[in-house]
Design a binder for these strands. Structure first.
Lengths: 244, 244
DNA sequence: ATGCTGGGCTAACCGAAAGCAGTCTCCGCA
DNA sequence: TGCGGAGACTGCTTTCGGTTAGCCCAGCAT
C-alpha cells in the first residue's frame, strides 16, 4: 500500500469524520508495520497479556472465546478496515482469541503508538472509538440473535449484516459477496451445530431466499430475507454524529 | 448524597485509578442533577435520540432490545455505580431501552457536560471508558453463555456473575445477595421461557446448589456452582492497568 | 493408484426447551 | 370481602435443533 487513503480503515473512518492532513499522517504512521499471517493460526490466544493491536488490511479474521468443554463461541468476524484487539491493548490483557479465517495482511500497532496517536489527534481517537462502539452494538445485536431468533432468521440476519458491513468497504452489494467462511464458522458464530447450519442453508436455498455456495453468498430475494430476519441496518449506517 | 466519595461510581473507579482532587470535583459536578424513576417505566426507548446518560445511584435497571415479534432480550443489568446509556450519548442515538427493575435514583448527565468532563480530565475519561470496556466484556461473556451453555449452567453462571459484581459495590457476598429480579427477567436475560426458568431453578434448588426465593439468591454450594457453570471471574476483577 | 484430510451434505433418532393450559398464593384495593 | 393481577409453580404435548453416523467430492501427499 503506497497511500493511506487506500486503507479500508481510512475509508471507513472518512465516512464519519473528515480527517485532516495531520490526522491522515498519524493514521499512515500506524499502518507502517506491515505483517502477514496464515489462515488458521491464532494471532492472539485467550489470556495472553500485553499484546499489540492490528489493523486488518486484507483477509478475514474471527474473534472467539473457547469454552473449557472445547466448544467455542465466535463473537465477531473482522473484515478489512476493522481493528483487532483494540480492547486488549487498552486493558493490557486479552480475553479472547483471534484466528485468521483466510491468509491475512495486517498492520501491527503497539499500545504506546496508539496511545500517543490518541493524545496527538483526539478527533482520530474519537473516530476510532466511534467505530469500536459500532462493533459493540454489533455484538449486542448478535446476542439478541442467539438468544431470541430462530435458526433460519438468525442465519439470514447474520449474512445480511455481514453483507452490509462489506458494502461499507466496497466488498459486497445487495446481490451478494465472496465469503470464505465454512459452515463450521457459521455454526460457531450462531450457536448452532454444523449439521443444523447445513439444514438451515438448504432450507433457505430451497425457499429461494439465498444461496451459500463455493465461497459465495448470493441474495436471491433480498427483501424476503429482510422480512424473515427483521433486519434493520440502522445500527450499522448511522452517519457520523460526534464530529463534523 | 453529600459527598461524591460515597457514590458507588466513585468507589468503583477508585479501584482502577487514584483520582485527584480536580477529577473528584468534575465527578461531583456530574452527580448534581439527581432524579428518581419508578419501577417498570422505561427511562429511554429504543430509537430515541439525543438522550442524556445516567449514573445509577440506587436500584436496579435492565437494558434490553425489543424484537418486532414482541419478545425481548435483556442485554445487561445495571446496578448502583453503573453508567446508563453512555453509548447513546456518544453516538447520539439509542439502540436499546432501559427499564428500572426497582424504583431507582440516578444522576442525569447531559452529553455536553460529559464531553466537557472528558476534555478537562482525560484520566477520568480513561477510567470511565475502562469501566465501559469491562461492561462490554460482560456482554461478550453473556453471548457465550446464551450461545453455548446449557440452561442450568447458564443460570448458574449468570447468578454468580451478578454476585461478583454486587460484591464490588458492597451489596453481596459468597453467601448470596438480595435480588429484585423476577423469573421473567431471568428468562428475558437468558434466552429461556419463564416456565423453563422456573424448572431450572427448581432443579438447582433440589440439587442443593442455590436457592432463588423471596427476592434473595442464596448460594448453597458455591464451589459446586462454579464447577457446573465453569465460572471464571477473571474478566471482572482485573485491577486497573491503564493508569497508576 | 491409494489413502488421507477438510469441507459439504444427508438421514434417523432423541432430548432439551418451548408452548399451552391451568393452579396456588400473596397482595392491593374497590 | 371478594375481585383481580403478578409472580411462582407444574403437567402434558410438540418441536426445534443436537447427536450420531455416515456419504461424496476435491486436493494433495505418498
Amino acid at each position: 500500500m503506497t497511500d493511506v487513503l487506500e486503507s479500508p480503515l481510512t475509508r471507513k473512518l472518512q465516512v464519519f469524520v473528515a480527517l485532516s492532513e495531520v490526522e491522515l499522517g498519524v493514521l499512515k504512521r500506524l499502518h507502517l508495520r506491515r505483517r502477514s499471517f496464515a489462515a488458521g493460526r491464532d494471532l492472539v490466544h485467550q489470556g495472553q497479556s500485553d499484546q499489540a493491536a492490528y489493523i486488518l488490511a486484507a483477509g478475514w479474521v474471527c474473534s472467539y472465546k473457547l469454552q473449557p468443554d472445547g466448544t467455542r463461541q465466535i463473537v465477531d468476524f473482522q473484515i478489512p478496515g476493522d481493528f483487532l484487539g483494540l480492547r486488549s491493548v487498552l486493558l493490557r490483557t486479552s480475553d479472547h482469541s483471534f484466528e485468521p479465517v483466510t491468509d491475512i495482511q495486517a498492520a501491527e500497532v503497539f499500545a504506546d503508538d496508539l496511545l500517543e496517536a490518541f493524545e496527538k489527534t483526539p478527533r482520530l481517537a474519537a473516530a476510532i472509538l466511534w467505530a469500536a462502539s459500532r462493533d459493540e452494538a454489533m455484538v449486542v445485536e448478535h446476542l439478541v440473535g442467539v438468544g431470541r431468533r430462530a435458526a433460519d432468521a438468525r442465519m439470514a440476519h447474520f449474512l445480511l449484516e455481514l453483507g452490509a458491513r462489506l458494502k461499507l468497504v466496497g466488498m459486497g452489494s445487495k446481490k451478494g459477496y465472496a465469503c470464505p467462511l465454512t459452515q463450521y464458522h457459521l455454526a460457531d458464530a450462531l450457536g448452532l451445530s454444523a449439521v443444523h447450519v447445513n439444514r438451515v442453508l438448504r432450507q433457505l436455498r430451497e425457499s429461494g431466499l439465498l444461496t451459500f455456495r463455493d465461497g459465495r453468498v448470493t441474495f436471491d430475494k433480498y427483501d424476503g430475507l429482510v422480512e424473515l430476519s427483521e433486519f434493520d441496518p440502522a445500527y450499522l449506517d448511522q452517519t457520523g454524529p460526534l464530529l463534523k
